[in-house]
Structure formats: structure tokens, C-alpha cells
Design a protein around this nucleic acid. Structure first.
Length: 570
RNA sequence: CGGGCCGUAGCGCAGCUUGGUAGCGCGCCUGAAUGGGGUUCAGGAGGUCGCGGGUUCAAAUCCCGCCGGCCCGACCA
């Protein structure tokens, strides 16, 4: 490609509405443009990067024996009704009707469609299978943001494994785990694999591949000492024991005028420190109110509540609903004596005594609560959010909590979909058994953005060679100087015929403009061809990532550059 | 879905309070010089002021409605 003829609309100024680094740079360097909220066009540079990413994904998927498909993005609503997800996924699915009034939707993922194809698997001899595609997904996100990181239309590699038994699924899952490790590492980003909640996908186990970044929206807890890592939706920690000996042992109501919060009660004369308080939250789980109990200084993770109860919808109750359920307002709520509501408690409250909580009378609390004696807890679950500095549940080391971007997610689905859609095979004994499934996703544009989040500096993007839109730019300092232009073109041809992704910057621009653009776009190697160097029969090779520059003899320049690029291609 | 903010030239912005010929920087086009980190000079093109309605002699500016976008939070496979 000659830059002169390329569509690379770089901007001198940062776009005003871009906050995230990847958003700012991908727009400014001419990789993407927004069409509407959460919908982006990939420009030639952006498309080239995504092609590199999907190329790596294909190689690694093929390596684990996966077969590529191409499924429709337009789905009949019927099949989603069969799996039960038509009603579960809610407003996040784009839905429409065709001219006959038939429900149709745009695919947010393809479990249903691949599972339908799997109906043609008849015998255990047909298994195992791993099927995948690289396809556009549609999700009507409530709040698209951060450029291409969180969007409503995006490309996803999604694969699905089909096995006769649990052990086969374990193996397919492990192979995906290894493949994902290789994929992201080849893309030049470090990922942390974390335990995650399976959410509405269902299934028993899931692992997310996370890239640490402030632009990310997930919080993960990790232990530097032993490597434990989990999404805070799933993470736990070890808490120091609290000695309740000597605390008040009999129930005693007391007036607490003006006390509305945990902190108020801490400051209140005769109150209690947060770890001696019981926080009472009223949640509506699929339409029914329930009390959720936590220690005063702990925060609820709603996803844990959903996972623990199996509720699809879990929302805080409105003030009116709370008053109806308990007869008091938030700030004075408690579970003492509550028999007619589901009471769910966090494990950190188990066995505690001498606790203080609301009395279900406004501005009245009760002390001396013995959890086992006074509360009718129906279910115990881990519900609290871990905090940085708490002890690792495995080794006791201090946990760190940081933001990160989810670039991949792998699930063990089990038989949820095969049972819903009737996918069975005959096993060796001739019995019909549901196929055991797994599903595995990678966000392509999100991976591109994650690379930018990790690989950039003040001047622009710094692409790792394997995903760079071009590996080398040959910059002609002065294209009007014939010998310079010719030397540049020759070098360009030599690199091109060696299979290097090279672009020749032959624009009639000041050298500074061309250097700035090359840095902004992030091309890993720049060969500068100019009259000064040519006078010594030399050109300069500059490495983007550290700016290191070396003079090369013109005669050996192509060879040296090719070597450097191939070295980093992997 | 709640809160805040913003739509004026390709990009970044001023003008709106107090109604009266639509501006600036960068970019773009032409010419010249220049040529190793966003160079300089001269000339030029480019705007339904988000959309619709209203008030007015007159609306980018005031009023009403709508649409779109951004940020924070809620939510999220």
C-alpha cells in the first residue's frame, strides 16, 4: 500500500467525547468511526488489525480440532422461546417482526442455533465435536461506552463443544483454556484467567480472560502470592475471626433517633462498630421480597445473590415495598422475629452473637442479637464483596482488587441447551443421553481495544507485530527528490515480495507529519529513507516501542528489516 | 432507567446572557518556497447553526416539542 492512496484519516486533535485511551487513539489514528451509539465502522486499519486477530484465533481454534461454520445473525424467535431465553434475556436482545408478523431477533450468541445443528449428531461415535464461527453479535446494551470496548454490534469468535460425558467437556474446556492463553499471548497482551459467575448462561463453571486496565468495567480480585484470581462477582476472602464473648447476650431494643445508616449507628452513643452490626437489605427476587443479611461493613454483590438463589431478576425493593414487608423504613430494618419472608444471610454472619440491627420500628434498633437463636435464616451463601487487602482464601496473602477488560469467557454449559432443544445421542449401551456442551467466546474488536489499552505511549499506539495493521512503514523523507523516492520504492518492493506487511509513505508532506502519523498509527518498524542517509548509502531503522534507531547499509536494509519482523511474528 | 452535560465547516471550539450580514485555530484546495519530528508565504473552497413548530419586521440566539451524542450511576451472557 502507498500511503498517498490509503484511507487513513488521522486527526490532529483528540476527539472531544473519547475518554478511554483505546477510544481516543483508535479514532484519532483512523482505525474506527462511530456510526451511532455503540455501533462502529472499522476503517481499513481497524479492519486489518481485526483480520490479524481473527487469523490468530483461527489458527489456534483449528489447532484444537475446531471446525469453522458461518451461522445466520437473524434468528427465529421460536428457537429462543424453546430454550427459554426469549423471556430471560429481556431488553438486551434486538427483536423485530417479519412481514407476516413472525417474531425474529438478532443473535446475541449462538447456543440455540449450533444446538439445533447438533440435532444431527446421532451416536456417541459422532462425538466429540468442537464447532466455531466468527460472527457479528447484537446486544442492545443499556449503556454503550468507551469506544469499541462496550458496543451494541460486534464481532465474536464463539465456539461450542459437544461431548458424550462430563469428562469430555472437561477436556474440551481445558483445550479452550490453553488455546485462549496462546491467542491472547500471541496478540501481545497478558491475560489473567479468573473464576467467574456464569450469569444467565447457566452452567457450572466459567473462566474469564481479563486484561488489567482502568478502562475495564469488571473488578477482579487477585493474589500476588499464590495466583488466585476471581471476578468480584465470584471472589471470596478469608476473614479474621471475631470474638463475640462478653458481648450483650439478651435482646434489648433501644431508641436511636436520627440513625439512618451503618455509620450513624457507629457514631451513636451506645451504638455498635460496623462488624457488630447486621445490615438488612430487602430485595425482590423474581417478584417475591426477601431479606438479605450482611455484616455492617460488607457490601452485597448482586450477582452472587442471583447465582445463589437462581433468581433471574434481583432488584432492591422500593421504599413502599419495604414498608409493606417490614413496617419500617431503611435504616431501621432487621430480621429478628421475621418468619414470613425468605431470609438469606452471608456466611460472615454465621454463629455471630451480640449483634445490633434494626428493630423494624423507625429509629429503633435492637442489640444482643444471637444470629442462630434469634434469626430464621433459610439459606446461607457467600454474598459479600471482597475488598483489597483482605486475605486470600487459598494462601492468606493480601488480595488486590483492580479493574479489567473481559476479552474472553469460557463456560461449561452441561446439558441445559441440549435438554431444552432435545439433542441426544445413543451411547455405547444404546441409551439416549443429552449431549454435554460448553461454550466459549472472544470479543474481536474488544481484543483490539485491549491491546491498545496496554500498548501505547504519549505519541500513539504501539502495536505488537502479530496484530499490527502494517509491520513496517517506509518513510520517504522527500518524495520530490528522485533518488530518495526510488530508493524508498525499491525497499518497499523488496519487503513486499518477502511477504512483509509494509506501507510506503510517499506523501508530499513534511517529514515531521509523516513521522507523527507513523507513531500515532503505531507501526512497529519505520525505515526512514532520506537524502542525508543516502549520501552515505544508508537508511535508518526505528523501532516504535522504544524509539531505538539504527543506521543500516542500503544493500542489507531489506534483509535486516525482514529478519527483525519475522523474529517478532511468532 | 435515574442524574449531569452537549449538538454551530472534516476535527477542536467561540458566538447565545442583551435577537439584526455566521466566526476562529487546525485540516482541505491552488501556487511558490522548503524538506530528518505537525515548516512558511500568498490566494481560495467549505456551514440545512441536530430536526419540527412557535414568538418576532427579523431567530444560531427567546419559547415548546422531538431526535441524536457524551459522562456518572443502575443494569449487563
Amino acid at each position: 500500500m502507498r500511503w498517498q492512496h490509503a484511507f487513513i484519516p488521522t486527526l490532529r486533535d483528540d476527539p472531544a467525547d473519547a475518554e478511554a485511551v483505546s477510544h481516543r487513539l483508535l479514532v484519532r489514528a483512523g482505525f474506527v468511526r462511530q456510526l451511532m451509539s455503540g455501533v462502529y465502522s472499522l476503517l481499513p486499519l481497524g479492519f486489518r488489525v481485526c483480520q490479524k486477530v481473527t487469523g490468530i484465533v483461527r489458527e489456534e481454534m483449528d489447532r484444537i480440532g475446531a471446525q469453522e461454520f458461518r451461522l445466520p445473525a437473524l434468528h427465529p424467535g421460536e428457537i429462543w422461546k424453546q430454550s427459554g431465553r426469549w423471556s430471560v434475556v429481556g431488553e438486551e436482545m434486538f427483536r423485530l417482526q417479519d412481514r407476516r408478523g413472525v417474531d425474529v431477533c438478532l443473535g446475541m450468541t449462538h447456543e440455540e442455533i449450533f444446538t439445533t445443528l447438533a440435532l444431527e449428531l446421532r451416536s456417541y461415535r459422532d462425538l466429540p465435536q468442537i464447532w466455531y464461527q466468527i460472527q457479528t453479535k447484537f446486544r442492545d446494551e443499556a449503556r454503550p461506552k468507551s469506544g469499541v470496548l462496550r458496543v451494541r454490534e460486534f464481532t465474536m469468535k464463539d465456539s461450542y463443544s459437544f461431548d458424550l460425558a462430563r469428562s469430555g467437556l472437561d477436556s474440551a474446556f481445558q483445550r479452550h483454556f490453553d488455546a485462549y492463553r496462546r491467542i491472547f499471548s500471541r496478540c501481545g497482551i497478558e491475560t489473567v484467567a479468573v473464576e467467574a459467575s456464569s450469569g444467565a448462561m447457566g452452567g457450572s463453571e466459567s473462566v474469564e480472560f481479563m486484561v488489567a486496565s482502568d478502562a475495564g468495567e469488571d473488578h477482579i480480585a487477585s493474589c500476588g502470592a499464590c495466583g488466585y484470581a476471581a471476578n468480584v462477582e465470584k471472589a471470596t476472602s478469608a476473614l479474621p475471626e471475631i470474638d463475640d464473648e462478653g458481648s450483650a447476650s439478651s435482646l434489648e431494643k433501644f431508641a436511636t433517633p436520627g440513625v439512618r445508616t451503618i455509620d450513624d449507628l457507629v457514631a451513636f452513643e451506645g451504638g455498635a462498630p460496623p462488624e457488630r452490626q447486621i445490615k438488612t437489605l430487602v430485595y425482590v427476587l423474581d417478584g417475591s421480597p426477601a431479606l438479605v443479611l450482611l455484616r455492617g461493613d460488607h457490601a452485597l454483590v448482586e450477582q452472587k445473590l442471583r447465582d445463589a438463589t437462581g433468581a433471574v431478576e434481583a432488584r432492591p425493593a422500593h421504599p413502599g415495598e419495604i414498608r409493606q414487608a417490614l413496617g419500617a423504613s431503611p435504616g431501621s430494618l432487621g430480621a429478628v422475629g421475621v418468619r414470613d419472608l425468605l431470609v438469606i444471610a452471608d456466611l460472615a454472619l454465621e454463629g455471630r452473637r451480640g449483634m445490633t440491627t434494626g428493630a423494624n420500628e423507625d429509629e429503633v434498633h435492637v442489640r444482643g442479637v444471637d444470629v442462630a437463636r434469634d434469626l430464621d435464616v433459610r439459606a446461607w451463601h457467600d454474598l459479600r464483596e471482597v475488598r483489597a487487602g483482605e486475605a486470600c482464601p487459598l494462601c492468606g496473602g493480601a488480595l488486590a482488587v483492580g479493574k479489567s477488560i473481559e476479552v474472553g469467557h469460557i463456560f461449561k454449559l452441561g446439558t441445559r441447551y441440549s435438554e431444552a432443544l432435545g439433542v441426544q445421542v445413543l451411547d455405547e449401551a444404546g441409551a439416549s443421553v443429552p449431549i454435554v456442551m460448553g461454550s466459549y467466546g472472544i470479543g474481536i474488536e474488544r481484543t483490539m481495544a485491549a491491546v491498545v489499552e496496554r500498548c501505547h505511549d504519549a505519541a500513539g499506539i504501539v502495536w505488537p507485530v502479530p496484530v499490527a495493521p502494517y509491520e513496517v512503514v517506509v518513510t520517504v523523507v522527500n518524495p520530490n527528490d528522485v533518488p530518495t523516492a526510488e530508493a524508498g520504492a525499491q525497499l518497499y518492493e523488496a519487503l513486499l515480495s518477502a511477504g512483509i506487511d509494509v506501507i510506503l509513505d510517499d506523501r508530499d508532506e513534511r517529514p515531521g507529519v509523516k513521522f507523527k502519523d507513523a507513531d500515532l498509527v503505531g507501526i512497529p518498524y519505520r525505515v526512514t529513507v532520506g537524502p542525508k542517509g543516502l549520501a552515505k548509502k544508508q537508511v535508518d531503522l526505528t523501532r516504535r516501542r522504544d524509539g531505538q534507531s539504527t543506521a543500516l547499509d542500503l544493500s542489507r536494509a531489506a534483509e535486516t528489516v525482514i529478519e527483525a519482523v519475522l523474529e517478532e511474528r511468532r
